[in-house]
């Protein structure tokens, strides 16, 4: 029998891995975006596990909307990356310091 906590622990491991990835690869925007995708995947798995074990379809509807928003986010993020690369010839996060923030 697979318990709910098995799914939740898997989601936690995946979430922790993607946080570590964001900390480790903070120079490369593309890897950062991929880590965000991994994070969303962990959250979606949690949502679906709860929807299954609580017998409530609302969790799956949420995942549906999260997928929509994540697709929009990825499309715009990649467009911004292409624009940054076209203007500065690099996607190194450390090189994007012209705002002096």
């Amino acid at each position: 029998m697979i318990s709910l906590s098995s799914y939740l622990i898997l989601g936690a491991v995946l979430f922790g891995l993607s946080i570590a990835g964001i900390v480790l690869n903070r120079r490369n925007i593309i890897t950062l975006l991929m880590c965000v995708e991994l994070m969303l995947l962990a959250v979606n798995t949690n949502f679906i596990a709860f929807a299954h074990y609580l017998n409530d379809i609302a969790g799956e509807v949420f995942v549906f909307f999260i997928l929509t928003v994540a697709a929009a986010e990825t499309a715009i993020g990649l467009a911004i990356i292409v624009l940054v690369y076209r203007n500065r010839n690099t996607i190194d996060v450390a090189a994007l310091d012209s705002l002096k923030g």
Partner: peptide
């Protein structure tokens, strides 16, 4: 950072909170 997140979350979702005893397999 990863160890911190993992320890916190796994402590919260441990089998005694979300195990098959509390949430039966449907």
């Amino acid at each position: 950072v990863m160890a911190l997140v993992l320890v916190l979350v796994i402590f919260a979702v441990a089998p005694q909170h979300f195990g098959t005893a509390k949430y039966a397999v449907p």
